[in-house]
Design a protein around this nucleic acid. Structure first.
Lengths: 205, 205
DNA sequence: AATATTGGATACCTCTACTATCTATGTTAG
DNA sequence: CTAACATAGATAGTAGAGGTATCCAATATT
């Protein structure tokens, strides 16, 4: 298919597709002539993935490129993909110097006997959030976080269950990406609804 | 205190503070003369809150204003604050027309007997995420989401526990805000770490 | 009195994510 | 076979977000 068909089938304008090609989010099509290239279903799929990551999850174009690069690099090694590629996504702010709460995070990880890389970006995100909360007068220690971490453990188990039985490594890697990244807004939405429900329950009993 | 002290104590530049004043994120100080105003600890606290919401959580300035307005409006009514004010935060994308997965969400809510307002934005977020996943070949039905929702229920119970025993309504409202919004990156970070751990466990056993 | 600071207003800046235009080439309908 | 239209690639332009810089008149400090 040519670019205009790719555009109409994906709902993304031709100029935007060209922009993604320039930015390296989308691999170039197969050149058939000097001013002609051919695209296939892989491109369409990739394009939809890009729109999901930027639109639903709100990732920036450069972060999306990093994620997609990682996807290509670690396809077939879901463990590395989960540990490294997806870790490259900044959940919160840019990693600044202060890791004043790193000790709390370490205590939590040790208590749970978690096997988590020492340089995992999620550690930094967690430490920074704790530091912010502390500065605002809500000091959470690792003991308070423990029950949350236990629930995260069970959530992660559900996530990994979803990846069982997928033999095609590319498919498995892509699904890992989708479930980890795209499911985040869904899980937060579930939490919001559950909070509303729980609050109603406690206030009307 | 005057604006320069507010600036040095918060680490936010004077010009940025003026910008926040213009944008209505920060209430104006008490005017003592035509070119002089006095700020207090409330302003300092508010400023730190703004930086936490925009920096750690990545909220836009306009969303932050909405959240802070809601905080002022519903102080003393934590239930409404949780249900409405915090619901105003867009977790994902701008609410577009397609709510093709709204039926799945409704089925889930009914199964759980959740008391969630029909117009809760979290419903839309969830429906949209499901629609995106479906378009990408990962159709999740409400049955798959059910165990996730059960865990969300327990997370919400922990959240509400944290609000117990706070008598000052302003403090309770602010803590509700902090725990719901600022804890999100922390919970996602915990999930990432738990995924890495679980993946390592399954691959090395 | 001299110097610095402040509030308020306005203009400007940088970055991101596109969007528009241009040109040289290809394709296709009549 | 030619006129109308599509295409790749390059370059320039745009709108919005989130500040930043400058100016001014009034006020505070020394």
């Amino acid at each position: 298919m040519r670019i205009s068909e790719l555009s109409s089938r994906s709902g993304v304008s031709v100029t935007t597709i060209k922009y993604y090609l320039r930015e390296g989010l989308l691999p170039p099509g197969r050149q058939t002539a000097a001013t002609q290239a051919e695209y296939d279903d892989q491109h369409l799929r990739r394009l939809r993935l890009i729109r999901a990551l930027t639109g639903v999850r709100g990732l920036s174009v450069s972060t999306t490129r990093e994620v997609l690069d990682a996807l290509a690099e670690y396809t077939g090694d879901t463990h590395r993909l989960l540990g490294l590629a997806l870790g490259s996504i900044r959940v919160g702010e840019v990693p600044s110097g202060d890791a004043s709460q790193a000790a709390e995070v370490q205590a939590l990880v040790e208590e749970l006997h978690w096997d988590v890389h020492a340089s995992a970006p999620a550690r930094t995100t967690l430490a920074e959030t704790l530091a912010s909360l502390r500065a605002l007068g809500v000091p959470l220690d690792w003991r308070t976080l423990l029950p949350y971490a236990r629930l995260a453990e069970r959530t992660a188990a559900l996530d990994l269950d979803q990846l069982e039985g997928l033999d095609d490594p590319l498919e498995a890697a892509e699904r890992a990406l989708l479930l980890t990244v795209l499911l985040e807004p869904a899980l937060m939405a579930l939490r919001r609804m559950a909070q509303e429900n729980e609050s109603a329950r406690r206030h009307t009993s």
